[in-house]
Amino acid sequence: MKNKLKTEKSNMTSITEFVLLGFSDIPNSQWILFGIFLVIYLTILMCNSIIIMITRIDPVLQTPMYFFLNNFSFLEICYVTVTIPRMLMDLLTQKGNISLVACAAQMCFVLMFGGSECLLLTAMAYDRYVAICNPLHYPLVMNYKVCVQLAIASWVSGVPVVIGQTCQIFSLPFCGSNRINHFFCDLPPILKLACGNTFLNEIAVYLVAVVFIMVPFLLIIVSYGKIIANILKISSASGRAKAFSTCSSHLIVVVLFYGTATITYLQPKPNQSEGTGKVISLFYTVFIPTLNPIIYTLRNKDIMMALRKLVSKLLQ
């Protein structure tokens, strides 16, 4: 009996690294996937960098709306850089070994930037609400100081919570398999590998998800409810179309991001298969960040005009 307990104890403390399986279930497609994800990553970097540049240099885009878009684009670059380069390296080397410390750091930054994105999207919704529902006081309410404060709050509010949750999860004992059927250290698959009772940890995950996903989402829904009600009161069709066009891009991004994040972090643990979780994670960590700059540029006349001016200057 004593020997058995000693063996179990040694197994619980013997894991010093995890193995990210990634896309090892389709071994013949590793190089194709490497090429696809490399192109996607470079596209995200290039498109968001262009948005950051034009929102800084074009005088027409020096408004709160584009100040937040600037922050959002930079956040997207940070967000994808936490996961995609590591995934590319694993595809290139055909190895997914990652130390516990590196895994904890990756998970911490993914959750941190994901939480910041939720809060920043809420700040952007508030900006649109003030612009459409209270246009006369918009310059006063959304002055530069308020915009900076909202941006800083979005970036740092979740940091202590995420660090605390990461430390709590990685202080759990891990025994048995160290193989993670995922392409990065996400919260649900890591919790599945933990030994013992993880009920309190799961409750903590749900509470944090409610605070950083559901509460901001409800605030955005309330904001857009009031925005739509005000837009419908506009008498001219052109006025309504212009008001809708300033909000539609943001609303599309909100639905895409919150939809996939809700399924991942608020779905009961037994109901989410590893394969499904991996596919959903691909959407909110890779594909949606690829679509976001396209959505914001193609559906925004001011940005398209600024891009044309920039291109014409470069060609002169």
Score class of each variant (00 low, 15 high):
residue 58 D to F: 04
residue 209 A to V: 09
residue 163 I to K: 11
residue 139 P to G: 01
residue 94 Q to L: 13
residue 194 A to V: 06
residue 193 L to R: 13
residue 117 E to I: 03
residue 42 L to E: 11
residue 284 Y to V: 04
residue 22 G to M: 01
residue 311 V to W: 13
residue 185 C to N: 07
residue 111 L to K: 07
residue 275 G to W: 01
residue 149 Q to A: 15
residue 302 D to I: 09
residue 138 Y to T: 07
residue 234 I to Q: 00
residue 243 A to V: 00
residue 285 T to G: 01
residue 158 G to K: 07
residue 188 P to V: 09
residue 254 V to Y: 10
residue 104 A to C: 05
residue 234 I to C: 01
residue 251 L to I: 08
residue 268 P to I: 05
residue 177 S to G: 08
residue 79 Y to M: 10
residue 69 L to A: 00
residue 206 Y to C: 13
residue 48 N to G: 01
residue 245 S to T: 02
residue 147 C to Q: 13
residue 152 I to D: 06
residue 169 I to M: 08
residue 1 M to R: 09
residue 268 P to A: 02
residue 202 E to W: 15
residue 147 C to S: 15
residue 78 C to S: 03
residue 228 I to P: 06
residue 263 I to F: 03
residue 116 S to F: 00
residue 119 L to C: 03
residue 149 Q to D: 15
residue 47 C to I: 09
residue 249 S to F: 09
residue 54 I to W: 08
residue 280 I to F: 00
residue 224 Y to W: 07
residue 43 T to E: 08
residue 117 E to M: 07
residue 215 V to W: 14
residue 180 I to S: 10
residue 135 P to V: 02
residue 295 I to V: 00
residue 115 G to W: 04
residue 309 K to I: 02
residue 238 S to T: 12
residue 53 M to L: 11
residue 70 N to G: 01
residue 146 V to P: 06
residue 157 S to C: 07
residue 62 Q to L: 03
residue 174 F to M: 02
residue 5 L to F: 09
residue 178 N to H: 06
residue 114 G to L: 08
residue 142 M to P: 02
residue 294 I to H: 01
residue 135 P to F: 00
residue 251 L to H: 08
residue 291 L to F: 03
residue 228 I to M: 15
residue 77 I to C: 02
residue 21 L to T: 13
residue 210 V to E: 11
residue 214 M to D: 13
residue 209 A to W: 14
residue 131 A to K: 04
residue 203 I to P: 10
residue 148 V to Y: 10
residue 64 P to K: 01
residue 190 I to W: 06
residue 104 A to M: 05
residue 31 W to P: 10
residue 265 Y to R: 10
residue 301 K to Y: 03
residue 284 Y to C: 01
residue 72 F to Y: 09
residue 142 M to Y: 00
residue 169 I to F: 04
residue 115 G to A: 04
residue 130 V to H: 02
residue 187 L to P: 09
residue 78 C to W: 06
residue 229 A to M: 13
residue 201 N to V: 15
residue 283 F to M: 10
residue 69 L to W: 06
residue 270 P to N: 15
residue 208 V to N: 15
residue 311 V to N: 08
residue 30 Q to C: 05
residue 93 T to S: 04
residue 172 L to T: 05
residue 294 I to M: 11
residue 280 I to Q: 00
residue 242 K to E: 01
residue 39 V to E: 12
residue 300 N to M: 04
residue 203 I to L: 15
residue 283 F to T: 11
residue 29 S to N: 11
residue 37 F to N: 12
residue 206 Y to K: 14
residue 2 K to R: 12
residue 108 C to H: 05
residue 188 P to N: 13
residue 4 K to T: 13
residue 104 A to L: 00
residue 161 V to I: 09
residue 113 F to S: 05
residue 68 F to H: 01
residue 153 A to I: 11
residue 282 L to P: 02
residue 251 L to W: 12
residue 85 P to N: 03
residue 205 V to R: 15
residue 252 I to V: 06
residue 209 A to C: 11
